[in-house]
Design a protein around this nucleic acid. Structure first.
Lengths: 225, 225
DNA sequence: TCCGCTGAATGTTAAATCAACGTTAAATGA
DNA sequence: TCATTTAACGTTGATTTAACATTCAGCGGA
């Protein structure tokens, strides 16, 4: 099932029709409230999200998805009206899995959907990780240390996932920056360090699993069970 | 070395200039025939490929690269002139590593080049080396001597990698300096010697693997397993 | 052939410098 | 409000420097 949140009736109908003709189940919504109602009942495989919306900005919807417990790593493709919006999105938040600028062709949209589904459904193969006192479930956006839950923000969580999914391997600062903040992010400030710090603090005793490798990056070491 | 195949003179010169100012070696070609002539002599690390070209379409060039024996997994970034859907879909499906739509910003191009090079060069990196009592894993930034870990700093590690990756070959002082300290480094001081010393000391029994070749440089000898 | 001399190259040491990372609090922005 | 970024400053330890020691290859003279 694919959800499409898009207020323009003609575009919505067109895309739904195209999706169904490709064999996807698809449902369209014209307002965020209807969309959230459906999300509470059943999660889709993928969300197509317009940026310009009534009631609530598309970026805010994305943000809510990413910070929710149940849907935090749901694949999302943003539909942006103009190139200016595209730029804005690039700079702001890298939380979407892909972007496509209107007017877009159906072939391209379908290709991107296929690509995103391939990526995400491959990535989510491993359900959960345990390293020492740390437990992490990417699908549920859930982290526990010695059994008790820890609340992480979206970026903190993404960062931790990258480290935990590559145990023993040093993730360089640039790779981490690229994956969490996007290619065009500023590289000269202490943002990454601050996030590592809050991660270590929030993780308490498991914080020491994050080891810094001076001049290179960070690494989580330990046996994954 | 990076190759750029682009028929527009001003864009080509601009990109080559930008690449060189970032410290890459780069060469530009205005026609596919000149490009192929160079490819037959020497393969680059990365190819930047315009889609609209005289003689031969950029997609066809990509296709030939992917179907060649020598260059089939060479990283390629497509430069697409228009936002036409067809071009993008083709580029995605034919195995370009990334693509960027004109007009593009130099910062963005450089960021994408960095990202692609990191990915591909990380993938093609040899996992690990063993020479006598010495074990070395670049990805993990990990060194062991007779099974017990040794902690090396960034430069020490880089230096050791260079020596171990070329067993039996004398690495001249200038090559080592260039690769570890960059082209513009001071050459008249004892920095290299000091680092070799601490390496030998930290490596203990494996330290004697690093042999000095007077008047030339250093060499690691022994069978790599 | 042997011996010791010599200069250039490399080794060694400790101290000085510098860059990377950590920390904090305040600013920014959705 | 909360997440995130920025800016300023602190801390650590990696890296470089400088001064001095040692080794080595080549050479000339016995």
């Amino acid at each position: 099932m694919i959800y499409l949140l898009e207020d323009d009736d003609s575009i919505r109908k067109l895309v739904i029709y195209a999706l169904e003709s490709q064999g996807y189940e698809a449902e369209g919504f014209d307002t965020p409230s209807k969309f959230w109602a459906a999300m509470n009942v059943k999660l889709p495989r993928l969300v197509l999200l317009d940026i310009m919306l009534p009631e609530e900005d598309g970026l805010s919807v994305l943000h809510k998805i990413r910070n929710s417990a149940a849907a935090s790593n749901l694949p999302v493709i943003m539909l942006t009206a103009k190139n200016t919006e595209f730029d804005r999105v690039q700079g702001l938040d890298r939380g979407a899995d892909d972007y496509i600028a209107k007017p877009f062709g159906m072939m391209e949209l379908m290709a991107r959907i296929r690509a995103v589904l391939r990526r995400t459904e491959q990535d989510s193969m491993v359900e959960e990780f345990s390293i020492g006192p740390l437990y992490l479930c990417p699908k549920r956006h859930e982290v526990k240390v010695e059994g008790s839950p820890v609340i992480l923000t979206y970026k903190e969580f993404t960062l931790l996932c990258l480290l935990v999914q590559n145990p023993g391997i040093v993730m360089t600062r640039s790779v981490l920056m690229d994956k969490v903040w996007g290619l065009s992010a500023e590289r000269e400030n202490r943002t990454l360090d601050v996030h590592i710090r809050t991660l270590r603090a929030k993780l308490g005793p498991a914080g020491r699993l994050i080891e810094t490798v001076r001049g290179v990056g960070y690494r989580v070491n330990g046996e994954v069970k």
